[in-house]
Design a binder for these strands. Structure first.
Lengths: 332, 332
DNA sequence: TTTACAAACGGAACCGGTTCCTTTTTTCAT
DNA sequence: ATGAAAAAAGGAACCGGTTCCGTTTGTAAA
């Protein structure tokens, strides 16, 4: 049913090398060009990508490894990658690692097997094994959201995000604060954000900040919030991600605390939902979509053997909304 | 750098056909089996999937076409597909159609070019062109979320969802209702849900329902809610999707209406966020994840030439939460 | 020991393209 | 009209596997 290049050649009465040249813009006479144009169109001929790739030894496939598919950040980034790839004829092969470090490794190996031209890895932690594998697969690997000396990367300014958030809430007069973070194994989210915040807090000597830890899951955040509120009475809970903040907000509601008058809450991420919920969540916006676009551009350059800057830092944007109370306002 | 099967054959002192047999479980003596085991391991040999697919004429790739990447339904479904595929060695090639019907067509053609074994299409509308293309590509195409006589499909019981929702809110005493739907071009969401609801409403003669239309976007839903509340004063707004409901809830909050005492709101979908927001949203849960798993199973069967039922209907689950007021309760 | 048959293996064709090299045709200046 | 150079086309090798078929080797029965 599917025609091959030989079929086309036969139908046109030329050699298949001529057809190949026609398809790839080699020197072909106007006459045969016309004839082939007609025949390929009428027969609905589509070249076999395997055969093409077998000889050419490269594809237009870009492998994308995400920690999970159902996360705002991953979705936005993937959309950005896809959109950028489309303009350059690339395709995105998505690999869901399911938040499993080991599966990230497998993913790289497997993608290499599929002969993807390059890999975009949204990593949470970059281990020694990640490095070795990235090296071993022999194709460009680009890190997004997490930096590393030895790999090309695209990171967010997590430290600054923490700093901006810290300065804002401190300016709003909060001095008894709970910081609900995640494991430091995730350097970007767990460490840098916290350190940025810590730096801001250090600028205000009379400020007490207690640090707590949770996972990325909303349900865990809810439990963590219970703990915090049971043993501490902060005026504000700073959450390391918007999802965690959502969990905290939920717990607050259940306890009958109203936000922000009884408790202020902030997040990081700039998820769509933060604008929709009431009160809208004060957060720091991360340019996930833009990161996806840039990642795609960079990986394409890398696969083409071009140089790209080793590490690029994307700026974040503080986004003040309603979930933080201004404690400086004159009491009514 | 990368070894080929010939290299391995040479290193082992056998013919490459022997190596191939070894790799694919043909008859090989214990001795050469051992030798090859060692050599492939030591040399880190990985077969070239192109060469394999070229001859075998098939891949383990399943193309998945989604309307958008950043939707709860798409994310859940993709996760289900991915999880199921993993167990059978399949891979998911994601194609984002960006809610563009034309791009769905292109996607099918392009995926066929990439020689995917089958296509899972999360369609919004199945046009004549979709059918023709699905037929032309010559590989199995499975519809998810939208049914069609001529194509294998996996659909949700949207009519029943509408019915369940209708009965519930009517039982709760609501008689002046706004139904905020979407275009009927989307048969499942725009038509069947509405008809189910309409049927329930017909069981209560003294009930007034006005029908409005919006898009899938939260921002549009917010505007639509403005319109509705300006010109009509329903006790309840039934929204065709959870996202639309979120928009309506936001508008209500901005207007100072409290939910559910001033206005009740419901959605469809069962998105994660509906449990998190306050008040939690009454909705109907659609088994997106399960649909993804089933879709993957079915498409694999289809690619293997096995029979699968032409159309399968997945059940939905009514999920009552806090966003609907009970008007029957004795007034305090 | 011979015979018979299966297991193991080698050789070659093939999948559908690309590319290099050679031959034929066209073009154009002399 | 002739020759040289450029353009166009053909032929064959090649990419890295799989598979078919024929030959060799091993093993068990006669």
């Amino acid at each position: 049913m599917n025609k091959t290049i030989s079929d086309i050649a036969q139908m046109a009465g030329v050699a298949k090398s001529t057809v190949s040249r026609y398809l790839n813009g080699g020197s072909v006479s106007a006459k045969t060009k016309q004839k082939l144009e007609r025949i390929t169109r009428e027969s609905g001929y589509v070249p076999n990508t395997f055969a093409q790739s077998l000889k050419a030894k490269r594809t237009n496939l870009i492998g994308t490894i995400v920690p999970r598919l159902d996360s705002f950040a991953a979705a936005q980034t993937m959309t950005g990658i896809d959109e950028e790839l489309r303009t350059s004829g690339g395709r995105m092969l998505v690999y869901n690692a399911g938040q499993d470090r080991q599966r990230e490794i497998e993913a790289m190996i497997d993608l290499a097997r599929q002969k993807v031209a390059g890999i975009i890895l949204m990593a949470t932690e970059v281990t020694e094994q990640h490095l070795r594998t990235a090296e071993a697969v022999g194709i460009p690997v680009l890190l997004v959201g997490q930096g590393h000396r030895e790999l090309h990367s695209l990171v967010y300014d997590d430290h600054r995000a923490g700093l901006l958030m810290g300065r804002h809430v401190l300016e709003m007069g909060h001095r008894r604060i709970a910081y609900l973070g995640v494991t430091e194994e995730d350097e970007a989210v767990g460490l840098h954000r916290k350190e940025g915040f810590r730096q801001a807090a250090a600028e205000y000597p009379n400020c007490e900040v207690r640090y707590f830890e949770s996972s990325f899951k909303i349900s865990d955040a809810r439990l963590a919030a219970e703990q915090i509120l049971d043993h501490y009475s902060p005026t504000l809970i700073v959450c390391a991600t918007d999802n965690i903040a959502l969990g905290v907000v939920k717990t607050a509601h259940i306890r009958g605390l109203s936000i922000p008058s009884d408790l202020s809450v902030t997040g990081f991420g700039g998820y769509e939902v933060t604008e929709i919920i009431h009160p809208a969540l004060t957060t720091v916006r991360f340019p996930y979509f833009e990161a996806g676009r840039l990642a795609a551009q960079s990986i394409l350059k890398l696969t083409a053997g071009q140089e790209v800057e080793h590490s690029r830092v994307l700026d974040v944007e503080f986004h003040s909304q309603e979930s933080v109370d201004n404690l400086n306002k004159p009491s009514v």
